[in-house]
Design a protein around this nucleic acid. Sequence first.
DNA 1: ATACATGTAACTTTTGTAGTTGCATTGGTC
DNA 2: GACCAATGCAACTACAAAAGTTACATGTAT
Lengths: 134, 134
Amino acid sequence: MKRNSRLSLALHTLSHMAGEPDRVRTSSDIADHAGTNPVVVRRVLGRLREAGLLTSEKGHAGGWRLARKPQEISLADVYLALDERLVASDEISEAPACSVEHALQKRVSGVLEEIEQSLVQKLSETSISEVRDA
Amino acid sequence: MKRNSRLSLALHTLSHMAGEPDRVRTSSDIADHAGTNPVVVRRVLGRLREAGLLTSEKGHAGGWRLARKPQEISLADVYLALDERLVASDEISEAPACSVEHALQKRVSGVLEEIEQSLVQKLSETSISEVRDA
DNA sequence: ATACATGTAACTTTTGTAGTTGCATTGGTC
DNA sequence: GACCAATGCAACTACAAAAGTTACATGTAT
């Protein structure tokens, strides 16, 4: 597919749902629209459900629905629900021998963490309904 | 290694060099400090050289040196030199059948592109010497 | 009962990238 | 000139993350 596909798929789907918030949609419908696979959709939307952004119902006439008003779902909610950490680097396992090196690594990590936070802040300023009406 | 290793390696190395800007360092020295491999170092630093952030010299007593004063190298310079596009999604090859879908995809891409730009803006506010002294 | 939906596990395929090896090229030093 | 130590680069392997796929259990309207 492409890079950032989870975030992209999630935003696409939610923005789409923001148009008709009460309509129930199946994974298959969503997958068709997004050009992907129902299982992939369920995997991604499952994360959003865990974060309280969506609800799902099994069985006949089941499917997915927004758990909140679209105006109350921000891009940061989505980003965090997916556990994305695009900027911050993962913690380093191997501690460097030199303590000066170690201190420098911590500083780099700290700076990247700050940038990550500012990214989340920026994302929190836009809702999925704003994406739809962009 | 870890996620974001190129950016992390680049920032680590440049911040380190910012301490003694005139000292020449070899790929091997840098690799030892960063816990990686000289070839990997040359690959990453090569990008920074193309972007005018570093110079390299072959032969005996060769190695790497900052091309500018550390105060004049921002994190955005590094990010852009590495061609990182952490937020923005790549363009989608397959055009969706439905034009409404297509329009929505463009809007999602557009929003992500805006976020990407604000990330670069944020990165431009910090120099590698500030990382060092953090 | 049946049909249709999610939930999930297991597996394959793809892709990006680190790591590695080998060698050509360059430029000091003896 | 011989030699050594550095970058530059190509080709390859190893590995991990994620998408895609298949299969099936579970739940729920009709």
